[in-house]
């Protein structure tokens, strides 16, 4: 459960204030599938970063699973990111010198899980995302779709309750993008909250709830009856 109340985030650029988020009120229940759309600079990424605890709002309240996030220390926030949140980025953000398997393993290492258990979890993930053959390949040796699958495997390896995807198909062609979306939607079917930022109306329309943003504000918030 995500509850944002009167969230603002302001950046100062050369003496000028940019209101990236300007009074956001938003409630997202567990297991929802939400898309966020809007023109460039409307604050979509900023909103996602705040939900994902990568960034702190300047004012407002943020509750995640009934915990007031805004009061937590840096270390506590890192722990929540590690355990409850999975990020998927447009540019994958894989570490180039690590193999696919090692990239997927990273969150487990950060959590302090013992080597043997990590091995089992990584093997399962490689299997689930059809990356078994690519386990020891480095990102440079993988296709865009494979890279994003590695990134999604990494984002889900800790079994987070929320997946935040910021234009996950932005660097992929249409068909591969659709496959990646299908993977993410699969996770949602498994009960994970899925929040996707996208420019693609067609992809956005697949979500059960569509939020449109402009100038740091939520303009419309529509839920499908089917959702």
């Amino acid at each position: 459960m995500i509850r944002l109340s009167a969230i603002t985030r302001t950046f100062h650029m050369g003496g000028q204030a940019v209101y990236a988020l300007n009074g956001i009120n938003l409630h997202i229940a567990s297991g929802e599938y939400v898309s966020i759309m809007g023109p460039s600079g409307s604050g979509k990424s900023t909103l996602l970063n705040i939900i994902g605890l990568l960034d702190r709002p300047d004012s407002g309240r943020y509750e995640l699973d009934d915990r007031l996030i805004t009061d937590l220390s840096e270390t506590e926030q890192a722990q929540i990111r590690r355990e409850k949140i999975g990020f998927v980025f447009q540019s994958f953000h894989l570490i180039p010198r690590l193999t696919a398997a090692e990239n997927i393993e990273l969150p487990l290492i950060l959590s302090g899980m013992p080597q043997e258990q990590r091995q089992i979890r990584v093997d399962e993930a490689l299997q689930a995302f059809e990356l078994k053959q690519r386990a020891s390949h480095r990102p440079a040796e993988l296709s865009g779709g494979q890279r994003q699958r590695v990134a999604i495997a990494r984002a889900t390896i800790m079994q987070p309750s929320v997946i935040l995807a910021d234009e996950p198909t932005g660097n992929l062609d249409h068909q591969i993008g659709a496959e990646v979306m299908a993977l993410l939607e699969n996770l949602h079917h498994g009960g994970t909250t899925l929040i996707v930022v996208t420019h693609d109306r067609e992809l956005g329309a697949r979500a059960h709830r569509q939020i449109a943003m402009r100038d740091g504000k939520i303009m419309t918030d529509q839920a499908d009856d089917a959702g």
């Binding site: 590690r82 953000h93 950060l110 959590s111």
Partner: peptide, 16 residues
């Protein structure tokens, strides 16, 4: 730098 950002995103603390 990007790698450090990523590590933070997947839950690394500053001290990690």
């Amino acid at each position: 730098t990007a790698e450090i950002g990523l590590l933070k995103a997947i839950g690394a603390t500053s001290s990690d």
